[in-house]
Simulated scan of single mutants.
Amino acid sequence: MDCSGCGFKVEGGYAFCPRCGRRQPVPCASCGYLCAPDFEFCPKCGASVGTPAKAVERPAPTPSRTIVPPSRTPSLLANIESEDGLHPVSDADRRTVTVLFADLCGFTTLSEQLDPEVMQALQNELFKELTAAVRNFGGFVDKFIGDALLALFGAPVAHEDDPERALRAALDMIARTARLGERAPHSGSPLLLHIGINTGPVVTGGLGIGTAKSYSVTGDTVNTAQRLQSLAAPGEVLVGELTHRLTRHAFSYESLGDVVLRGKAGGVLVHRLDAPLTAPRAARGLEALGLSAPMIGRAAELN
């Protein structure tokens, strides 16, 4: 294109002539007609200079609410924090959950005997084994407290046989801990767990404030499970009454009777887990209660 002032050949895209400095015509973005620099609209097609004819001007979005990315959507783990304090959202969920507390016996003594770095490595290896046992049976590791583990069966995902899953996970945890004690460097004494398991109603949801908030459960069921764990001897698994009632078709127990647990009013029926039954009974019906109702006087009909 030649300059309209001096005739110098101007390359495409130049707004000014490099020889005389004259402003060059602007091509219409719609039809391509060369418009004078001071034209607002194309004299050929009427389109605004520099704007395509079919372009649609979109109004600026009006901010209405804060959009939370999907990865941070507070579906289960959020409270709304304001100047008035904390207002719980509708993530709270009341449900029946089997709570498992597992604790390493002699942790304080072991910490005195081992170097802190060795102790940390042992704890991490132990937590790895315990977590694998919980997840293998569909449980959820709520948190680690010192040398203890809190696991949930029935939250956030529920199964029909969650109490039975919790017991099988407990036996697996004890076996894994024993194997770890055989190969890990420590004082030479066996590594043993004592475990408490209890089933009952809890409220699940986000507990804590800000970044410390996490999915957890609260209720007396959790407290009772922790008291059962404290009562259990090394290598023992103690369970509450409801857990026993829901799993006695598949496991053998030794009853310890009514036991007064620290901080609780009245006694709690406690049972010591023995082992899985070689021939499990039905989970429902009279057989689950150790009863039977044979047909009498119906031989002909049965034949």
Rank of each mutant, 00 (worst) to 15 (best):
D2G: 06
Y14K: 09
A15W: 07
F16L: 10
C17A: 08
R19D: 08
R19V: 14
R22L: 13
P25Y: 04
C31H: 07
C35R: 02
C45S: 02
G46M: 03
G50Q: 01
T51C: 00
E57N: 07
P61K: 03
T62F: 01
T62Y: 01
P63M: 04
S64W: 00
R65D: 09
S71P: 00
G85Y: 13
L86S: 12
L86N: 04
F107H: 09
T108Q: 11
E112K: 12
Q113W: 03
K128N: 12
A132I: 06
A133L: 03
F137N: 00
G146P: 11
L171I: 08
A175R: 14
T177Y: 05
G181P: 07
G181E: 07
R183G: 00
P185A: 12
P185M: 07
G188M: 08
L191I: 04
L193Y: 04
V202L: 08
A212T: 05
G219L: 03
A233Y: 05
A233M: 10
V237G: 11
T247F: 08
S252H: 06
S252W: 01
Y253I: 05
L256V: 03
L261S: 09
A265F: 02
R272A: 15
R284W: 04
L286S: 06
E287H: 05
A293M: 02
